[in-house]
């Protein structure tokens, strides 16, 4: 370990990033908190945060939580069997297939949401096909259902990847051992496979729930202007209303949720499972 003459030279080398991180990560976050707890005159106040209880904002928050929750559950229900199938296919052959399932994760979500606008529109692709087949058309664009669909479509890969990772890491012989000790396939799943995949489930839930909770673009594009989520409210405060104090206050509320999520995650991680 003689790469550095002393700790000082290593520190010197790390310092540009340290300065950068303080200026562009720590300070901006501090500013959000500062704006969140002050009013226009600069006086300290909790009003901005407390205004989350006003009916419009509170409704938006509840709606956000509800839609994010439903989307997370759907993502989980779709991703878990998928992860199991992929994990059971065993190495080498499936890396390409797994890649196919997680590639959309890194693709622009704006475009992915745009595709669903096109598909779901009143005279969109899906309805055209339905009409052609003489089936009743669907009208879900600009509804909560469309937003949930958009969330599931966008965030599904974020659920698949960690679940697949945790499942594929389970040693085959651990499963065999459970069978060997008399467990049938259901018991093996409930007592071994599922608990061992909990870390993957939790990080999947986080990776879906947080972006779903805080999105504004999906609701704008698929929910029309009628359905506002907490993300839309915050966005409007900064781009239309220019009330940075309120916007920051509501952001603090969001961050509290993120923080809560992280705490739950770290607790269940330490205990090795919540089941």
């Amino acid at each position: 370990m003689k790469l550095f003459k002393n700790a000082k030279s290593a520190f010197l080398m790390a310092s540009p990033y340290l300065v950068w991180a303080v200026i562009f990560i720590v300070v901006p976050l501090a500013m959000v908190i500062y704006y969140g707890v002050t009013d226009t005159s600069g006086a300290f106040t909790f009003d901005n945060i407390a205004r989350i209880s006003e009916s419009g904002y509170f409704k938006a928050l509840c709606r956000s939580i509800a839609l994010a929750f439903i989307s997370t559950v759907i993502c989980f229900l779709l991703a878990y069997p998928l992860g199991m199938i992929l994990a059971s296919m065993k190495l080498t052959r499936n890396t390409y297939l797994v890649t196919l399932f997680i590639l959309p994760m890194w693709m622009n979500f704006l475009l992915r949401t745009l595709t669903w606008m096109t598909l779901l529109e009143g005279k969109g692709v899906i309805n055209t096909v339905l009409e052609f087949l003489h089936l009743p058309t669907i009208n879900i664009i600009n509804t909560s259902g469309a937003i949930v669909l958009g969330m599931v479509y966008n965030f599904l890969p974020f659920m698949i990847l960690p679940i697949y990772n945790s499942l594929s890491r389970i040693d085959d012989n651990v499963i065999n051992a459970a069978r060997d000790l008399g467990a049938d396939s259901v018991q093996t799943f409930l007592r071994i496979t599922l608990p061992l995949s909990v870390p993957g489930i939790i990080s999947g839930i986080t990776m879906v729930f947080i972006p779903a909770l805080t999105t504004f673009a999906i609701s704008t594009m698929l929910g029309g202007s009628k359905i506002l989520l907490i993300g839309n409210i915050i966005e409007q405060q900064f781009t239309q209303v220019y009330d940075w104090h309120l916007g920051s206050g509501l952001s603090i509320v969001l961050m509290i949720f993120i923080l809560l999520n992280m705490i739950i995650e770290s607790i269940s991680d330490k205990e090795g499972g919540i089941f």
Partner: peptide, 21 residues
């Protein structure tokens, strides 16, 4: 820890925090 902040935090919060800065 600091490096993790932008990865964990919601993009919208990162965005507005930088905008304020």
């Amino acid at each position: 820890g600091i490096t993790n902040i932008p990865m964990i935090n919601a993009d919208i919060v990162t965005g507005i925090s930088l905008m304020l800065l």
